[in-house]
Design a binder for these strands. Sequence first.
DNA 1: CTACTTGGGATTGTATGCAATACGTTCCCG
DNA 2: CGGGAACGTATTGCATACAATCCCAAGTAG
Lengths: 229, 229
Amino acid sequence: MPHSPANPDAAPKQRVQDAIRHDIIFGTLPAGARITEAALATKYGISRVPVREALHALEAEGFVESKPYAGSTVCAIPVDDADDLFAVREALEAATARRAAKRAAGQFSAGAPDGQWWKTRKELAAILDEGDAAIGNGRPDLLPELNIRFHLGIAELSGSPSLTALLRQIAGKIEWLYASDLNSRGKQSWGEHRTVMAAIDAGNVPEAEQVMGVHVHRSRTGYLSRFAG
Amino acid sequence: MPHSPANPDAAPKQRVQDAIRHDIIFGTLPAGARITEAALATKYGISRVPVREALHALEAEGFVESKPYAGSTVCAIPVDDADDLFAVREALEAATARRAAKRAAGQFSAGAPDGQWWKTRKELAAILDEGDAAIGNGRPDLLPELNIRFHLGIAELSGSPSLTALLRQIAGKIEWLYASDLNSRGKQSWGEHRTVMAAIDAGNVPEAEQVMGVHVHRSRTGYLSRFAG
DNA sequence: CTACTTGGGATTGTATGCAATACGTTCCCG
DNA sequence: CGGGAACGTATTGCATACAATCCCAAGTAG
């Protein structure tokens, strides 16, 4: 959902925003490339206004940099920040997992079922199944996208928009890093997701926090060892 | 700079963005309040377009929530997220301080002085002096603003736009929390800033990280004890 | 030859008008 | 009297037009 390749019938602004981000993450738009609103407007057959809003949103996400009256350029891949980004992500996702477990306990027991919560929980179940199917069908290339959706889903379950927004921002950068690398830890990492989900469903707060922390930490060391060698 | 009260000769978009954020942080716009572009446009005597962009930026910052074709409302104060936000901030600022110290070592020794770096370093010195003066003159109310500028300045010194953007997002929320509370730990907390600065200037990487971590941690426990206790 | 000014062209920022969508209200039918 | 569907209003989303700003290059004075 967040960084899907293309949703033809979405709002124009969202469409071009996703398209540009995709082009940046996968290298079609290299770092330092100049971007002009007019060019994108003609390219996508829309006016400058939605393009402009998409660019500003991407600036907030950290993919492009704009200077007033001067134009926008593509930011550099934050490869030097990888270690620190993972460290922050560790603290952040430990918090989302802990809070998700806390809320889960309330959802399963008490008498005020939250429709949104159950919807997200169902989506997560579907994501896990899709991932397993992707592995079974020899399509591990689908895992990165599913991976991000899983982690954002957990953040949704935490019920904290603040934390979700922060994770969304970090996840974008991490997706960028992984796209430059070719993801590999895939299968083993994916299997750990069910452990996280189980801890949350059980309402086991400390275990949820700990398991998620270990999961993210492994992802971090995996990436760093692959990249820095 | 980031959340200044009002800069009359700034761009309209930036001006209304700061004004609205100020109104939200200091309670003029209460949580749940409906916001319409047209009303703000008349209020500030400008067109709907810059207002619209300001609102979208504030949505990315987590202060307002917008639904397509339905309008925007002021978000709730993230008081339940305080603990987690401080935890993430601890990891984040430990990273910025560490990287700032690492870069400082390079700046003082080697032969490639970075103009931007020195400019930020000078601004930080001015901020520290302003804070001392504010305390001396019995104006501790100026400290929260200076406090944020100091921490964002350290992030600038780290040379990482990713980390700076993340801190900016978190700092906005924390400023919001502190505004609902009335800041108190002020004076002692401010004094710790010179310790952080000294560690960075010395290029003492582990000490910079550790001192900043303790500083933020004290701020966290101080807030939580005041609020929950 | 250098430094400063002064144009032109390109690009973003803002204003206005129109189209698309959501929400509340009312009216009709059961 | 209750429920659901059509409708009107309010509000956002997009398109077009214009103004403000910046960058760069050419030209001129010293």
